[in-house]
Structures are given as C-alpha cells and as structure tokens.
Design a binder for these strands. Structure first.
Length: 423
RNA sequence: GGAAGCGUGGCAGAGCGGCCGAAUGCACUCGCCUUGAAAGCGAGAGUCCCGCAAGGGUCCGGGGGUUCGAAUCCCUCCGCUUCCGCCA
C-alpha cells in the first residue's frame, strides 16, 4: 500500500508509472478523499479537545453553571460523533482505493505487458546437446514409474500430482537440498509455518483484497481461512504489526511448504504435466531488510536462487520482467527460466521480487533505527525453488538416450541413488 | 464441548469514575562521578493520527454501551491460563 501523500506528490510521477503496468490512477478522487478525511479528523479533534476542557470544568463548577456546562458537553459530543463518522467513512473509502493500487515499477523495469517484453539479463549453462529426440517430463515420469497423473486426477481432479517410489523420494531430497543450501550456505533461518492463514495476512502481502479468486478459501462456520499460495505469506507476515530494530536487519527466512493456487483464468495453459498445479511444494526465501537497501538485496537474493540451479547443473537464464507483467506488490522482478528440452524453450521456474516498502506498509512491519528514526521495512522474496518445476527440469535435462535420467551429483547424498531407470 | 480465572507501556507490576498516558522496579538514552567499569546521583525517553509549526487528538486485548467525564461500570468478541471431557 502506498502513502497517499507520496502518490499525490508530482515528483513521484505515480500516474505515469502506474500506466506503465496498465493501471490508471484517479488522482482527483484520491486527493478529495484524503483532504476530506483529514478535515474531518481535525474537526473531531478540536471538538474533543473542547469537550475535555468542559468535562474538567464540570467537576468544580457552581451548581447554577453546571447545567449549562453539561449541556455544552452534550452538544460537543454530538459534533465529535458526527466528525468521527465522517472520518471513518472517508477513511474506509480511502483505504479501499489504496489497497487497489499496485506498486510502482522502478524506472529500470522495461516497458511492455507480457513475458515477451522481458529483458534478458544473463544466461547460465548450456542446454544439453541431446543426440536423440527428447521426451517431456510427463512421458519420462511415466516410463520411470515415478509420476502418476491419471490417479491424481481420480483423487482430486486435474492439476494435481501423485509421485511414486523414487519420484516421491526425489521430491523429498530436493526439499532437503534446497533447505540445506539456504540455511547452511546462505544464512537463512528455517521456519515451519501455518499453510492456512487469515484475511489480514493475505492482505499484508497483497494477495487480498484484489485476487481472492486466485486463492483456495476454507472455513468452518464464521471462521475464514485461506490456503497459502506461497510461503511468502506466512514468512513475511511473521513480523506484521511489529517494530524491528534496524540493526537486526536483514532477516533471512526460509520455509518448505505446500502451495495452493486456484489458477483461475489459466484454462488451457500448461495443462500437461507438473508445470501448473493447484497444489505444489516449494522452498521459499524471504528477506526483511532496511528499506534503503532493497535494490541491492534483490541482487543478493536472486544470487541465492541461481545458486540452487547452478548446484544442480541446470541451464537457465535470468530475465527482468516488463512493467505490465509485474506482480501486484512488486516494483521489480527477476524471473529465472530453466531450459526444458521437452518444450525446447526456457520456462519460468522461479521469480525474485523487490517489494520496497509496499508490503511492509500493508502489514505494518515497522523499523526503528538507533537514532530513533522510524520507518517501514523493505521486503523481498524468491522461490528457492519450487520442487515440481525443478523435477521437470531435472528429468528433461538429465535424460539419456536409453530413457534413464542422471541425478546431479550434488543431489546424490540426498537421494541415495544417482540415476532413475525405466521400470 | 463444560467450568473458573486473567488480559495495563520493552519486561515486571500498581491503579478510588475526574488529580491517569498512567505509580514503582528493571531494562534503555544522555550527563556527573571513576584510570576504566560497576554502584551512586541528575535528566530524558512510548505509539499512532491531524497540523508548515505552535499545538491538538488517539491508545490500558478488539468492538460497542452507560456518563458531562471510563484503564476503572455494563455488554460482546478475541486471546491466554487452570481443571474436566474428547482427540492426532
């Protein structure tokens, strides 16, 4: 959420910046709401101040002037009540408007609306030169006897997966490898967190109120809970409504959780295989930092995500997303795209985003520095990585002419096997 | 699910319907003292909102009510603790 004053400041250039991502900001009504709200606050405060003075005067008043004072106090009370009501009403409107406004893209973010407009930053590794026609991960998984999509559909419907035998073991090994890398090499603290969270948490990171249709919602009686689409939600909200001493920053958190996405509006997209699931498992990296350092922290963070792919020897590239392709809360995002021989192209596997203070304002994650300066924290997150999509890349890039798949060396201590072979 | 109790500032812990933003202790910041530190002494310091500022307002778990006036009374919700039941 933005500070309305900042949005209204011409120096911010908010209208143009938001237009780059396809959002049209109504500065006029914003201005009107803000000034109206502030005027109401002031009116209420003045009346309340007077009411306090009168109430104090009542105590020592002569009997004959007491009645007049009490009546005056009653009148003031009405004024306070009216001003307060107006304040609340305008504040609700203002908040609703602000909650709807996405983050401002940084100037370095390229123009454009789709992934075609992303800017190539760098490429790592060589797509394996296969002297045979590569299979995609669905066929591979089927032959290897580790992936059973038909039965997943029977159990829950499309976009769910069943892993079997070494497939299930591979999933477990990947999660452990990712977590060890994050905690032992990159300094993240591992958490185990709820995967069902309340509306406040979802609003804090920006999934709500705008994107409720993307979430799975559950509840018993009046109670309302949402399945997390990513561990970003619980990890970032750990410090919601808290004030952090700047000298304790940056905080680096990781968690391995299931993630749930309704994938509304993605009908027909990636219907085959493990790419787009309603439920998948992911290791997430979250950083809570001094707000002035987020841009540098993003480079650190994307490096941590890249290290995972590099450790597995998977060819990938890094792109900077176009303004119109940014997530709601992000001001800049790098996508990591891994090479998929089965599709003969790079496909998104992870994305690392800098949210500036956008989420911290929503979630009220405050900071206080040694000299007493107060502000909001900066937040960032990256996948590190999703297990399913990593398995896709691993199977497809590691496939051999005989139909077997070679497990990357770094992973062998975790799997206990170095090769998957057809059943 | 049943019964009882409790929710005050970073922590601990007072608080008669007006003198309470709130005693006191610890912790904290800045001085003094000391070779240095500790102890001692003095001073200061909460949050959020409106305001250029001066200043004003808010906040004693959340919300509502009674009253000229509520941390103090009432209602309600939430959370925590203890006991019983059930249970992974």
């Amino acid at each position: 959420m933005h500070d309305p004053r900042v949005l209204l400041d011409p120096a911010t250039d908010a209208v143009r910046k938001l237009a780059r991502r396809g959002y049209s900001l109504d500065l006029g009504s914003l201005e009107k709401l803000l000034s109206g709200r502030n005027a109401a606050i002031q009116r209420g405060d003045e009346a309340r101040a007077e009411a306090k003075r009168v109430a104090t005067a009542v105590k020592g008043a002569d009997p004959d002037e007491r009645a007049a004072l009490v009546e005056r106090a009653r009148d003031l009370k009405a004024v306070v009540g009216a001003a307060e009501q107006e304040h609340k009403a305008l504040d609700a409107e203002l908040t609703a408007l602000l909650l709807d406004v996405p983050n401002l893209p940084l100037d370095e973010v390229p123009d454009g609306a789709s992934d075609d407009d992303a800017e190539l930053v760098r490429t790592w590794g060589e797509p394996p030169a296969l002297d045979f026609t590569p299979l995609d991960h669905v066929d591979l998984g089927d032959r290897l006897g580790i992936l059973d999509l038909p039965r997943a559909t029977k159990l829950a419907g499309p976009r769910f997966a069943v892993l079997r035998g070494r497939g299930a073991a591979l999933e477990r090994a990947l999660a452990r490898y990712f977590l060890d890398l994050a905690t032992e090499r990159h300094g993240y603290t591992e958490y185990s967190v709820p995967t069902l969270v309340n509306r406040t948490s979802m609003t804090g990171t920006g999934q709500l109120p705008k994107f409720e249709q993307d979430l799975f919602k559950t509840g018993v009686d009046e109670r309302e809970l949402f399945l997390i689409p990513t561990a970003e939600v619980p990890l970032t909200n750990l410090h919601a409504q808290e004030t952090l001493a700047t000298e304790t920053l940056p905080l680096a958190y990781t968690a391995h959780t299931p993630c749930f996405r309704s994938e509304a509006g993605s009908y027909g997209k990636d219907t085959r295989g493990l790419i787009r699931m309603h439920e998948f498992s992911k290791v997430e990296l979250v950083r809570v930092v001094d707000s002035t350092t987020t841009r540098d922290e993003l480079e650190v963070l994307v490096g941590h995500a890249e290290a995972v792919l590099q450790g597995l020897g998977l060819a990938y590239r890094v792109v900077k997303l176009a303004a119109g392709d940014l997530g709601f809360s992000a001001q800049i995002t790098y996508d990591l795209e891994v090479w998929l021989p089965g599709q003969q192209k790079y496909r998104e596997i992870a994305s690392a985003s800098d949210f500036g203070t956008f989420q911290a304002r929503r979630a009220a994650i405050r900071t206080r520095s040694k000299d007493g300066t107060r502000g909001f924290a900066g937040t960032l997150n990256s996948s590190g990585l999703p297990i399913g999509r990593t398995m896709v890349a691993l199977l497809e890039q590691g496939q051999q002419a005989d139909g077997s798949v070679v497990i990357p060396e770094a992973l062998v201590p975790y799997t206990g096997f170095d090769r998957l072979t057809p059943a």
